[in-house]
Computed example of a mutant assay.
Amino acid sequence: MPIRIPDNLPARKTLEQEGVYVMDSSRAARQDIRPLEFGLLNLMPNKERTETQFSRLIGATPLQINLTLVRVSDHQSKNTSEDYLKTFYQTWAEVKERKFDGFIVTGAPIANIPFEDVRYWPEMLEIMEWTRTNVHHTMFICWGAQAALHHFHGAKRYRMDKKAFGVFRHRITAPRSPYLRGLSDSPMVPVSRYNDIDRTTLGDNLEVMIDNPDVGVCMLGEKNDSAVYFLNHLEYDNRSLADEYERDRAAGLDTPPPVNLFLNGDTSADPENRWRSHAHLLFQNWINEIYQTTPYRLEEIGKAQEA
C-alpha cells in the first residue's frame, strides 16, 4: 500500500521516480480500510528536502498511511515561502485536536541555543505534552530528541570538544527491541551534531538502544514505549552531509570532510550511501509496531493515559 501525501507536493515527483507508491486523495478515499494517520513536525529550514527524506522511508511500508505535514505556529520561515507552507502544511494549532498513530518531530539547526531561548520553545512545550495524549507513538529526531529528553526526562546535553560529523559505525545495545529487528550488529549511521547527552542524567525509564562510545548516544527508547529518541540522521540522503560540508566551507568554517563519507577521501566524488537499508528497516519496524499496537478506533488514542 502507498503513502498518501498532499496532492501536488513537490516531493511526489521524486518519490514516484524512485518507485515509491504514492496515492492521491481521490483513490485513497475509496480504500475500505482505516489508514494510519502520521504527522511530521518539520522544524528544518529546507522543508522540501526533509519532507522528501521522511516520506521516502514512510512510503516504503505495505500499509496505507496518511501523512500530515505540520509546522510550528509561532515561527516565520526564512527559507520556505509562506505560500508553500500554506499550501502543504498545517500549523500545530490547526491539528492539535486530532489524534495520530505516529508522529515525527525533526531536528532544527539551533543546537547552540539554550532550549528556553528558542523563540518557539513555549509552543514546543505544548506540542511535546500533546504527543502524550494525542499520539500513539512519537519519534523525536536530533534537536527534537534533545529537546524531548530535556523536557520529559531532565536529561542534560553538553557540547562535545569537536563536531561529530560523518558516517560512523555504531553498535546495537538492545538487540531484542522490535524497532531494531533485523538490523546488523554494527550499522553505519550519519552523524552531524555538536552536542551529546550526559549519560549520567538518563533516568531509569530510558534504555540506550544504539550507541557509539566516540560520538555518543544514537538511539534511546522509553520503557513505557510511548516514544523513541534518535539523535542522528538515518533519514539523510546521499548528499546531505556533503552539502552541509560545502555550506560550512563556503561560510569560512574550518570544517573537516565528513568521516567515512567520500570514497578515498575524494570530496569531489558522489558519496556512497551505506545506511539506506538500516534506515528503511528501522522505519518499517517502527511503523509495524505502531500498526500492531495502535487502537483500531483513532479516537481511542490517549484514553489509556487518561485512565
Rank of each mutant, 00 (worst) to 15 (best):
T68P: 08
R56Q: 03
L63P: 03
D32V: 12
V228W: 13
L206M: 11
Y120H: 04
I210Q: 02
L180C: 05
L220N: 01
G182L: 07
P256C: 09
Q76G: 01
I5N: 06
I172S: 05
W286N: 09
L67W: 06
E300P: 13
Y21G: 00
S240E: 14
A304S: 04
D248C: 03
R71D: 00
L69S: 11
L15M: 12
F140C: 10
R30Q: 15
H136A: 04
V215A: 07
N285S: 01
E16N: 01
S55V: 05
M128K: 07
H280E: 15
N232M: 02
A93Y: 01
E300F: 08
T133G: 07
I141Q: 09
E94A: 06
R71S: 08
R49E: 08
E18I: 05
T50A: 02
F140P: 10
D211P: 03
A108I: 11
D204W: 02
I110T: 15
D225R: 03
M188C: 13
K303F: 12
S192V: 00
G59E: 14
G221M: 15
L234P: 12
S184K: 15
E306D: 15
E306N: 10
R171S: 01
F88R: 06
W143E: 13
H278S: 15
R249G: 02
F140T: 15
G107S: 05
E97R: 12
P257G: 09
Y194K: 10
E48I: 06
I113H: 14
L202Y: 08
M160G: 03
R176N: 13
L149T: 00
K163R: 08
E18H: 14
N8K: 10
L298F: 01
V135M: 02
F140L: 09
E244C: 01
R249A: 01
H170Q: 07
I301L: 08
L231K: 00
A93P: 04
G252F: 04
E299I: 12
Y21R: 13
F152K: 01
Q284H: 15
P271W: 12
R12G: 09
P187C: 05
I110K: 08
E306M: 07
H153S: 04
N273A: 01
I197H: 06
M128E: 00
A307C: 06
D198C: 02
H137C: 05
D32C: 03
A148T: 12
K78A: 10
E222M: 10
T52E: 11
I33F: 05
G252Q: 04
Q305H: 05
Q292I: 08
